[in-house]
Design a protein around this nucleic acid. Structure first.
Lengths: 292, 292
DNA sequence: TATATCGCATAGAATAAATCTATCTATTTC
DNA sequence: GAAATAGATAGATTTATTCTATGCGATATA
């Protein structure tokens, strides 16, 4: 009961007359007259004075106009902001990931498509990343392995072969490809329990009935890499996560299908969120173009 | 179709929930739910996320809240301004006057009664002051003499006797009161044609058949005063306008009713204006208290 | 100086919105 | 597991908003 009155007043004051305002805002002149009249009536003020057959702003009207100008500028800003949000020109997306390796590509692609969206990445272990997702602290999770969960919606992103890496002076270093049997009795440095790569690798070993000599268990990719460089043993890594070094060689395993997977996970409930859908769409396209 | 939605959003965001907002703004919760829902629907954005049985602001929602906070602050300011205007706690009043003498008292009284109103005084000759009034350039005119005019509403304010003033060494200087006949043959300095004081004074002289010796015509009160101080002659002035000086004496004329008048004039059409009515009321009271 | 035009005011009806009551579902608390 | 809490949904009702039609006074035009 007050907003439209202010809006009518503003239109009339800006357009310089009731009929002019009527054309400008596509509201009939009697409506504007009534609204402005009601405003003047309610507050007992004169906003316009009669001057011949037209009406002109009073001092009071001019002062009010200064306020309404700011008011409607804010309203326009609110609408513009919402419009932008609709077109995903602004906003924010929080992503949790177990490692930077799989997520970087997605982020780059999404940022290309929606440069206005602020991206926040939080790295953590599988459990924490999932907890953040379930707690609405992040919008997207990028995980290797996920258990079946009704609350979640999982999109497989990509699989990476797991290879073996050795020091350049190791006998296997010159091979372009090895068989899993070559690992029998080799001094192996393994990842911590719970590592998806370790699980995948051990499954393959068990299946092939190969038993390497486990010399060490280290809970960090970087530490394992150091250990291999120092010649303490050989190890394995997802090829996507391998960081090259002059003294290291990564060797694919030819006869075993060992993979780590990257999944994009969201909350089932939030499937309809525009920004989340946009992210999943970008992921889908990235996957396709990369599969070529 | 959009304002109430923003208002509902703002209420919910500020109150921290739909039911809390419902209590705060006295609008039922289903209404708020619908309004916010429509806003999210129309722009395809998530402003709140479900979190257990409550809903929390999203990043987008938080950004929108920043805008709506400013928006509704402006609206409050507009309302506050209108409220103040109603109570005449703010505003502006333009007054045109032919001289500062009569108007100062009114202004002082009005300012005491309505300290928030900004007062603007423009001095000018009778014609210009009236033109400004008719042209809505001023709200009030303070004039000496006005011709009958349907468009105007005139309130007599006060009359001031016109006296004679002479140098202290003049023969009349020791008198406390003189008769108009004493002016016969006196060297008189007169005001310009059109001066109300001159008109009133000359009418009295004619009526009494007195003929002073006119030595000079000067179009400025201040210049005439200087001329009298230098002994060039004697002159007359409205007692309200007389500026005392050690070498001058103001002497009332006992047997002639010579007055100048001050009238407050407004436009008939604007009689209902709250601020103008307030001014006239102050003028009326001032006149009464001064008549004692 | 009649007459057309312009700018706004008024009355009443039609439309669109905002808001309500009643009820339901999901989540949390005790 | 019952009660309480926070919000969602459906349908009816009330209230604003806007419109059409017309009138009136001031100004421009012939």
């Amino acid at each position: 009961m007050r907003y439209t009155q202010l809006r009518s007043f503003h239109a009339v004051a800006t357009a310089g007359g009731f009929n002019a305002a009527s054309d400008a805002v596509h509201i009939t002149q009697p409506t504007l007259t009534a609204q402005v009249g009601a405003l003047e009536e309610e507050y007992g003020v004169d906003l316009f004075i009669k001057r011949g057959r037209r009406r002109e702003l009073t001092d009071t009207g001019r002062q009010l106009l200064a306020i309404t100008s700011r008011l409607f500028a804010e309203e326009e800003e609110a609408v513009a902001f919402l419009e932008q949000s609709r077109e995903l020109k602004t906003g924010r997306l929080s992503i949790g990931a177990v490692g930077p390796y799989h997520v970087t590509e997605m982020l780059a692609a999404f940022n290309r498509a929606y440069p206005g969206i602020e991206l926040a990445v939080k790295l953590g272990n599988s459990h924490d990343v999932l907890a953040d997702l379930l707690d609405y602290k992040s919008d997207i999770a990028v995980l290797a392995h996920i258990d079946e969960d009704d609350r979640l919606l999982t999109v497989p992103y990509r699989r990476h072969p797991v290879g073996v890496f050795v020091r350049t002076d190791h006998p296997l270093a010159k091979r372009k490809n090895i068989k899993i049997a070559s690992l029998e009795g080799e001094p192996l440095i393994i990842r911590e329990t719970g590592s998806t790569t370790r699980r995948a690798f051990e499954q393959a070993l068990t299946k092939a009935k190969i038993r390497p000599r486990i010399v060490m268990e280290i809970g960090s990719r970087e530490a394992i890499r150091e250990a291999v460089i120092r010649g303490l043993g050989i190890s394995y890594v997802s090829e996507a996560e391998f960081v090259p070094d002059p003294s290291l060689r990564l060797i694919p395993i030819g006869d075993a299908e060992i993979f780590t997977y990257a999944h994009v996970v969201i909350l089932q409930k939030r499937e309809t969120s525009r920004i989340i859908r946009a992210f999943l769409e970008v992921v889908r396209k990235t996957k396709l173009s990369n599969a070529k």
